[in-house]
């Protein structure tokens, strides 16, 4: 039973880990505390839901489109706004990102209405299996799988690719990386877009099992900050294990 509850808890933490991973990545590289990161999770849920309605109900296509749309929003946020406050006091970054929390909350209320939405669980994932005498939904297993896959993917990206090398170098010593020719503005945009995509993915995956509502981002951002701080601000590897 304890083992089973652990497994259930781990799936609950997976959504959080997707949000926290992006949040931590962005802080580690850019030194920006992105309060609006929870809103990107919320946007992931809403935009995936919208895509689901447009594409006629295919969860898989929506799952692909939704987080990509959030990544695009991330690009606009970084390129249009955040870029202008890198050099000023951190309080301004908080003000700016917090303003976006309020803007996005009201925006989804305007567009989608204040009511709860929730599409049905995708076909093929609505079943359940028996684990240690208890019932575990297939969707939870799917989430565990996705979480693990993203974890491994992130590790490979950071440890095995040139992009990852640049990210790690910049996170470790920004000035030195710049001196060695890393074009930080492009890197920052890339990292922010990737972080936004991760949050969007978390939101997208949540819609079959959690009611979509304005304000859902604020609930997760607090927990995500707790995770990021516990794992050590800016440290990436700690993040995954820190969930448990």
């Amino acid at each position: 039973m304890l083992l089973f509850q652990g497994l259930v808890g781990l799936t609950e933490a997976m959504y959080l880990w997707l949000v926290a991973a992006g949040l931590s990545l962005i802080f580690g590289v850019m030194r920006v505390l992105n309060f609006a990161h929870g809103s990107l999770y919320m946007l992931g849920a809403y935009l995936t839901y919208a895509a689901l309605r447009v594409d006629g109900g295919s969860f898989w296509i929506a799952l692909l489109i939704g987080p990509l749309l959030v990544a695009a929003v991330g690009w606009v946020l970084e390129f249009g706004f955040l870029r202008r406050v890198y050099r000023v006091d951190e309080a301004f970054q908080l003000l700016l990102t917090f303003a976006f929390v309020l803007i996005f909350d009201d925006l989804v209320k305007l567009v989608f209405g204040p009511v709860y939405q929730s599409p049905p669980t995708p076909k093929g994932l609505s079943g359940a299996v028996s684990v240690a005498g208890s019932i575990l939904p297939v969707y939870h297993l799917f989430i565990l799988g996705v979480g693990a896959a993203v974890g491994v993917g992130l590790w490979l990206l950071l440890e095995r690719t040139r992009f990852g090398l640049i990210i790690r170098a910049t996170a470790a010593d920004r000035e030195m990386a710049r001196a060695l020719g890393v074009r930080s503005s492009r890197l920052f945009t890339g990292v922010f877009i990737f972080g936004a995509w991760l949050a969007g993915l978390g939101g997208a995956l949540s819609i079959p099992v959690r009611a979509i509502s304005p304000g859902m981002g604020e609930l997760i951002i607090i927990e995500a900050f707790v995770v990021v701080v516990l794992g050590g601000l800016g440290s990436l590897r700690a993040r995954f294990s820190e969930q448990w």
Partner: peptide
């Protein structure tokens, strides 16, 4: 796990929506 034959729940609003959806997944 307690072997309950029936569930009484006063969850409401979005939390009721979420709880029912998840309860459905757990059969």
């Amino acid at each position: 796990a307690t072997g309950a034959e029936a569930i009484f729940s006063t969850e409401w609003g979005g939390e009721a929506v979420t709880m029912v959806k998840q309860a459905k997944l757990f059969k």
